[in-house]
Amino acid sequence: MACFLVPAAEAVVTTIAAKAMKSKEANPETVKIQLDGAELVEAEKIPFSRKLSWLNKLLWGGSVLLAFEHVWHGEVAPWFPFLTAASNSADVAEMLHEMSTVGITMAVLVTAVWAGMLAVSSMIEKRAKKALPDES
């Protein structure tokens, strides 16, 4: 009914957080790494704000497409109050229940997948550093 509003709200928060973080971030860490073969190149580790933007993109992208699905099913209308369920109290209760169950699960699932991506990317970064030939 309006489950996409929960991940959309999370997207607003994470977008603001990413912007705030980006402005405060110091120079990124530079490492020597083999990016595509034998040659060692100097590369910058991507900052956390960039990784947070992955979550933003997942949340915004998903929310926009889900909002379209809600328009398709007549649950979102282009006139006030925009959510058709908001017109009577019984539907409002059902909508809030759906937001607190399906909506929260959506936000948690997307965030959990992003956390998994962080773990994998950190593993890849560590492995790439380990794979460097001894400079001594």
């Binding site: 997942l58 949340l59 992208g61 998903g62 699960t105």
Partner: peptide, 20 residues
């Protein structure tokens, strides 16, 4: 990449919906 993020985001959200 824009398309990837959008479609994966929507897929995950619909997966949550499918679980319910």
């Amino acid at each position: 990449g824009v398309l990837c993020w959008m479609y994966w985001g929507a897929s995950l959200m619909w997966l949550a919906d499918a679980i319910f």
